[in-house]
Design a protein around this nucleic acid. Structure first.
Lengths: 147, 147
DNA sequence: TTGACATCGTTGCCGATGCAACGGTATGAT
DNA sequence: ATCATACCGTTGCATCGGCAACGATGTCAA
């Protein structure tokens, strides 16, 4: 038999990504009790100032419903504030509360350290991986044309 | 702010893997109505002869329950046969039926073609990606020592 | 202004997923 | 032989994920 699952790129990619995500998720789950979508929303809010649900949905590769539910949980936890937009009342403006900002500051340190460890493991393969990932997502975009 | 989610490796890896898996899953879902775990079980059975649920669980990074349920569905579809092991009656021996073998032959062509397209998109970055993935999973193994 | 159409966020729904517990079986020490 | 222990596969359960439909709002043309 010629076909070998271990040589199949989608499979290997999936396994590697799951493993890495799992390891990192365990860290911030222990640190702050966050789920993956919650972490992503927080991380995105950490860089931008005020953002709508739709912005995150597009930007962070997360379904609208995920973002909405994550935002609700984060609001209940007092980490994120939800406000109506001034001119467009359809929009919901999300922003970090002071507590949310403080948490993100801690998590960012965690993330940087995690990535540093990862890069150390990768060694000189790190830039190659980065480049390959860029190409993958770029080629994926092409295949999802406008409906 | 220094932290940028787009530069964060676990995130980029996750996005790329999800995208690729999604594209490929769409293909064999259209071709044979398979889910991801079902595809993985079939693919594994395609290479080995007789395998137990546990073998697949370990080998294919799938929870025992997944494998069990996938195997049940595949059996109902007439693609996989389940037998008791000769000496160890705890084990369930899975093997492809002729129909399952025929389906896999078609799917393997599909998989090879998909991978070829992927490698073409990657160009000279393909070997680098392969190497980096190997290092990632290898370093991940270390961090999950025996309980 | 009015009406058709697009967009935004929420919610309901269903299948996928991971975890824990269970019955059944094998293994090893006493 | 007996008992404690470890292992295998299945099942139940809670959660996550994506998809579609909905109400509400905005936009544009006639």
């Amino acid at each position: 038999m010629v076909f070998d699952l271990d040589q199949f790129l989608p499979y290997r990619l999936s396994v590697a990504a799951a493993q890495v995500s799992r390891r990192f998720a365990a860290r911030y789950a222990a640190e702050a009790g966050l789920t993956i979508p919650e972490w992503r929303v927080l991380a995105h809010l950490g860089q931008g100032g005020e953002v709508s649900v739709r912005d995150i949905h597009r930007r962070v590769n997360l379904d609208k419903s995920m973002v909405s539910r994550a935002a609700t949980r984060l609001e209940e936890a007092g980490l994120v504030g939800k406000t109506g937009h001034d001119t467009d009342r359809r929009l919901v403006v999300l922003r970090l509360t002071p507590r949310g900002r403080a948490l993100m500051n801690r998590l960012e340190v965690l993330a940087e350290k995690f990535q540093a460890d990862l890069l150390a493991d990768l060694g000189d393969a790190a830039p190659d991986l980065s480049r390959a990932l860029d190409r993958l997502v770029a080629s994926g975009q092409d295949r999802t044309p406008a409906p």
